[in-house]
Design a binder for these strands. Structure first.
Lengths: 334, 334
DNA sequence: CCCCGTAATGCACACGTGTGCATAACATCA
DNA sequence: TGATGTTATGCACACGTGTGCATTACGGGG
């Protein structure tokens, strides 16, 4: 139904070849013919079919972006970064969510492959290690952002969890805290292990003892309010003055639980989060947290994709975090 | 480079026609041939090319989704709703952002048309009225979600701003407030007018006077903290006991300004927002707000698209809001 | 033995675009 | 005038898939 170059050719009394060349500015076509055809195309409302071009060029200028879910506040800005770079480079982005389900993650990748995307970007992948083997079958470069799985994979961009966590814990130590807890999360095994490692490194560097009883692991199924209360219960028994949390949602849940129980933050308990989601700024007290450059992560991933498609060598990248000091941390009361 | 049906045909010693039929389960192909070819396709890692199929079928099973920006907390869940329904129906979604720039909105729609998407969904469009005329050129149905522009357009899904605002103001009236302010926003003209209309209707229904000096319009360029302080200044001069705000960000800005100035919320000033963004739950006090069913809006829009593509008649839809009563509202102090 | 019906498969084209090569018209030069 | 070069255009094919129609083989019935 849309106008094709054949329609224009018929209207202009030339072959479709000439139309194609005129529109692309081929030098062999006379200036007047080119002008006439372009004007005609304009009038008839011609838009070239990217589908046909893709088929011929064996390249779609399209990438697939797999996210966990739009409900995850982390994801959103990453999408923004990817889309921004993609749009600038003339690429279009397919978006689809895996809902944290490995089967759906495979299905989504499969769909993208059917669509013949030039590359795939996956956030928080649960099966990063699988791609290496699958990649022989599908000839599509896959870049992983904050891959959650150990093992072999090809390309990845990730935030420096260790450095970020270290930053947060150092801040607490500098404030004078000595008994500092770590509140983890079990359903993000890789980054949890790294952030905990950053916590431990900071403690060791400061000459503080590592007490395993100060590592807390709330049940991931419960919502953040329940988890906050459960964790707070344990924390109070351990007599810590500050905690570093795996992420902001965990930290906020804990902070709200403190409010319920009448525990003053930061006077009685200092809390540091990780991620710097929007809500971190709005809660009371505003949350001190490790800022994760989400937009930049997305940008870097897409830039890596462009490099790959240009045939350049690429290396895995990690990007540093910085600390946002707000109101949830203070020196310990004595 | 990927495996095609011709490759399979060569390997099986048949024509590509037979392969195509075998894979699609055509009855004319013998059972054993079908089995043999399917097994071969499996082994060779064949994935049909959606590009080639699209070209032939003149249909891509693809839709384009235009959002303002991923930084807008409203947008995200809408994307989730659209994507959920699309994925279930076997459609893929192109995502692109307009950054609230009409020129880019046009460019994005143009790109989608080049990609031959079957339909386009636009959130918070700035040029809804333009589509009607452009639609003659591009033969693609466009569904607008919460269109921000007056004028003619074809299909739309929108939240019932009037009903939602009425709900929020009624709540304040029922609590006993009589001098109630409205804090608007000028860069969303259509929905702002409607929400204000809901405010006025609720006031009239309760027999309360409409005082134009209780309508506040902060400068949209400033960030929410500045706007909060500026608005609060005016509010305090007017002696109101409660305000209904155009959206949650405005309400939160105001609430934070109150905290700075030592104005107790809700004891001295009750605040109602609109949208129910994530942060509304986390702020202190938690914000009473009109919940906007964002995910559902996305779902409805995509379902409307599916109806359109099935050749069914569709009608514009509005969807009702409900009130989330939290901690930022209370009876007026006397 | 011939005709016809049925089963299984292939040929050729279509979808919209781009490109190598051939073709045609015309100018230039020896 | 004939050979060569230049300019402008068209033919035919390719990309991967699906389908109408033709073709082939075979079996059964008269």
């Amino acid at each position: 139904m849309p106008v094709t170059i054949k329609d224009i050719a018929k209207a202009a009394g030339v072959s479709h070849t000439t139309v194609s060349r005129a529109l692309r500015g081929h030098s062999a076509i006379s200036a007047e013919t080119t002008a006439r055809i372009r004007k005609l195309a304009q009038e008839m409302g011609y838009t070239p079919s990217a589908v046909a071009q893709s088929l011929l060029a064996q390249r779609t200028r399209t990438i697939g972006l797999v996210i966990t879910t739009t409900a995850d506040p982390f994801t959103v800005q990453v999408v923004g970064g990817v889309e921004y770079v993609a749009q600038t480079a003339g690429y279009s982005v397919f978006l689809s969510s895996s809902h944290n389900d490995p089967d759906r993650e495979i299905a989504v990748v499969e769909t993208f492959h059917r669509r013949r995307v030039d590359a795939i970007i996956v956030t928080s992948s649960r099966l990063g290690s699988l791609y290496k083997s699958r990649l022989d079958k599908i000839q599509v470069p896959i870049v992983l952002i904050n891959n959650q799985e150990e093992g072999e994979y090809l390309y990845s961009v990730a935030v420096d969890d260790v450095q970020g966590a270290q930053l947060g814990v150092q801040h607490l130590i500098e404030l004078g805290h000595r008994r500092i807890g770590y509140v983890g999360l079990t359903n993000r095994p890789k980054s949890n292990r790294r952030r905990r490692q950053g916590y431990e490194t900071a403690m060791k560097n400061a000459g503080l003892p590592l007490d395993p009883s100060l590592i807390f692991s709330p049940i991931p199924d419960h919502d953040i309010f329940e988890r906050g209360h459960e964790t707070l219960e344990q924390i109070l028994q351990r007599n810590v003055t500050a905690v570093f949390c795996y992420n902001d949602l965990t930290a906020i849940g804990l902070s709200l639980a403190c409010r319920d129980r009448g525990i003053a933050v930061p006077e009685r308990l200092s809390i540091v989060g990780f991620d710097d989601i929007d809500a971190a700024m709005y809660v009371t007290p505003p949350l001190t947290t490790v800022h994760q450059p989400r937009f930049e992560l997305g940008q870097l991933a897409m830039e890596m994709v462009l490099d790959l498609l240009n045939g350049q060598e690429v290396q895995d990248k990690t990007v540093a975090c910085h600390l946002e000091v707000r109101g949830s941390t203070a020196p310990p009361a004595h």
